[in-house]
Design a protein around this nucleic acid. Structure first.
Lengths: 213, 213
DNA sequence: ATGATTGGATAGTGGCGCTACCCAAGAAGG
DNA sequence: CCTTCTTGGGTAGCGCCACTATCCAATCAT
């Protein structure tokens, strides 16, 4: 497959593909001659993943590069590799760690994790991007004057634990590590909007039930 | 409160506040003289909501304007007002309705809603932005070659229904309609990253449990 | 031989969320 | 009163980022 064919099959313009090649999101094709390169199905798959990350996940190009690097890093074991890919993901802007709302949010998260018995998450604590991406929006909620309590968060957390368990069940049905890492990324990113959309559909349904159409 | 004080209290630069005034995200203060305006606590609260929507929710300014217009529209009843605000929200890019993957995703959503017995959502169907924002990422998943089945989606949907029910329970503890609409928006937007972060923390916890730290 | 195509490099575009600057009207201090 | 800020409003521009348009030499197709 030549670059132009890759473009046709993916629906992505050649200019954009070249841009992705330059930005190292996509690996070079196999050079045939000085002016021809051969691309294969893996390039097509990767290209679609990139588009999904960027367009659906709104992941910045620089972050996509890091995520894909982790996906491709064969020196990592299966868990690490998968974790590394997810680890590179979200990048919520950090809240000011000095602000009282931030401290309150952190305390809240600590209490929540204790309540849930999520000891590993608590031990890893502030190092994990997931942990920090939890503190930030909680801080915002508190700043806005919307009180958030452990009692209120716990059911949400339990629902999401159930979701996460399901995520892994699906993942374990896959054989290959590379495919698994790619799937994990696709699932993490692409299922986020699915979950949020499901929540909103559920909200509309609930609203109709409570107050009528 | 003068503009500069509003800036100090909110941590938002005067230039940015002026920009929001221009963009009609924030209403003008009460004019005292030709060169002074008086802002109050409601402006501060609104400003924080705007920041939350833009920074945490990544909601584009134009969309924020629509959402806030719905929040402020006193001609709407409580349900409508709240719905209108949520209705204005997500705006996922539409997928090509002709593409086979899109049709498959739509069929999937229909089946899912039938399975769940969410008849109102199914009746409203393609009109609702929530519905469409569900079709789009599912289409992407299918295009990427990740099969998605009703069986697989159902538990996710049930979890989110539970979350939505909880959302409304919290909402009903609030008395005032304006506050309720603002809270609904804040909750819809600001709890999204909380939910997603909880999912990721739960994933790390689950990973540690299954495969060790 | 010759026009088309390819892939690589480079500079430019458009959108968006701000941000720097300017100006005139008014407040503050003597 | 006069001078010296300060304030709020308007306008133009900046910086980032995801592309995109253009050019060019090598090479392919006929």
């Amino acid at each position: 497959m030549r670059l132009s064919e890759l473009s046709e099959h993916s629906g992505v313009s050649t200019a954009t593909i070249k841009y992705y090649l330059r930005e190292q999101l996509l690996s070079q094709g196999r050079r045939i001659t000085a002016t021809r390169s051969e691309y294969d199905a893996s390039h097509l798959r990767r290209l679609r993943l990139i588009r999904a990350l960027i367009q659906v996940g709104k992941v910045p190009v620089a972050t996509v590069r890091e995520v894909l690097a982790a996906v491709d890093d064969e020196s990592l074991g299966r868990t690490t590799r998968l974790g590394a890919a997810l680890w590179a993901l979200p990048r919520a802007e950090e809240a000011d760690p000095q602000a009282p709302a931030t401290r309150e949010a952190q305390a809240l998260v600590e209490d929540l994790l204790t309540e849930l018995g999520w000891d590993f998450a608590r031990a890893n604590g502030a190092l994990s991007p997931a942990y920090r991406s939890l503190v930030t929006p909680l801080t915002r909620l508190l700043e806005l004057g919307h009180p958030v309590t452990v009692t209120e968060l716990t059911p949400y957390a339990r629902q999401m634990a159930s979701v996460a368990g399901h995520d892994f069940d699906v993942l374990e049905t896959l054989p290959d590590d590379a495919e698994r890492a790619e799937t994990a990324v696709a699932a993490a990113i692409l299922r986020e909007p699915v979950l949020l959309a499901l929540r909103r559909v559920a909200q509309e349904e609930e609203s109709a039930r409570r107050y009528g159409p």
